[in-house]
Design a protein around this nucleic acid. Structure first.
Lengths: 191, 191
DNA sequence: GTCTATAATAGGATAGAC
DNA sequence: GTCTATCCTATTATAGAC
């Protein structure tokens, strides 16, 4: 409020992270080089190291952090919406996931990081991401009438189906596999 | 038959490929270096290039070839066993898969290659591997009483669950997720 | 078939000017 | 905050002796 140009354009770090996100989800950690990142962002190496002093590890961490934030704000929040019906919660999640994975055309960043090299440098974030997701699905089911045990089982099955269908959709180049799995997960969670 | 030492020890290429298999399934294509391979096999680079003149790409191709052969001899053959019951066929497959993935402790080489870099160098083999698997599961179900459409749907769901549970088991370091998915797949295919 | 040695290049990261 | 130039190491791959 004090100065007119205090609202000067903030660093486009968020846009850089978006590019990183797409690169890493497609190639995994070891499949993406700093040169690749430079080409994709239009930035030189020094600019990249200015934004991410820790280098490639920092970049991957930023991407996983963004993914976790996204899950928190788009999935967890919808699932735990107070007073919402189970149908509303589940449909919100599935709609968000459909967008994140572009209808089955794009991979899961957690899975790509898990399998794409990185020698365990990112495993904690990946584990935490899956755990948060799993926990909030189970809680949503428990809050809307299922027993805790049954909620946990169905939550596991839901994530298994999402992740598996992303793999198979990509391998067979058939996004309809993902689409049908979304429906199947819906039936599972609402049935 | 003609010479006594015709049966001299054949080149241990198969054992090399076994090591490569474990390396690539854990690190993906880009996560494994020639040095890593040298350490794991105890061979020098020149020996490796003697066995695989095309370099790392050849090594990955050999691994995917072995994986396809294994599926053909252990999974497809069991699934299409003439006269066998559906239960026999399915249990044979699940038992083989349980061994291949070490009860959920080890990843799928196809998935690792798919997500672990490699810039599309291996995608044809991966697609072919999944397609063969999917087709033979569907055929086994169709041969034992299901409609073709229903067989295809269940086959897709089975592979989705196997692959997804491998991802989640690894991410959460909980092989029981895989184990329970095997049971769930059994119910799906026999139900 | 395996080894030592050696290219040749790509990769990650830094220095310093602007 | 970005660029150019540079460094160092790892990496892929080859050559030639044994």
């Amino acid at each position: 409020m004090s100065r007119a140009n205090l609202a000067s354009p903030p660093p486009p770090r968020e846009m850089i992270v978006d590019k990183l996100f797409e690169l890493f989800r497609n190639g995994g950690f070891d499949g993406v080089s700093i040169s690749d990142i430079g080409n994709a962002t239009g930035l030189g190496k020094s600019s990249l190291y200015h934004h991410f002093p820790g280098g490639k590890g920092d970049m991957a961490a930023a991407v996983l952090g963004k993914a976790s934030d996204w899950f928190e704000s788009e999935v967890v929040k919808a699932l735990l919406e107070p007073g919402a019906s189970r149908e509303q919660r589940v449909d919100s999640m599935l709609s968000a996931l459909d967008g994140l994975y572009c209808g089955g055309a794009k991979p899961c960043i957690f899975a790509s990081m898990l399998l794409g090299g990185a020698e365990g440098r990112v495993n904690e974030s990946v584990t935490a991401g899956f755990r948060a997701w799993h926990k909030s699905v189970a809680r949503a089911l428990a809050e809307t009438g299922l027993s805790s045990a049954e909620a946990t089982v169905r939550s596991t099955s839901a994530i298994v189906q999402i992740e598996g269908s992303l793999i198979l959709s990509r391998a067979l180049e058939d996004p309809s596999i993902f689409k049908r799995s979304l429906q199947s997960v819906r039936d599972l969670l609402l049935g």
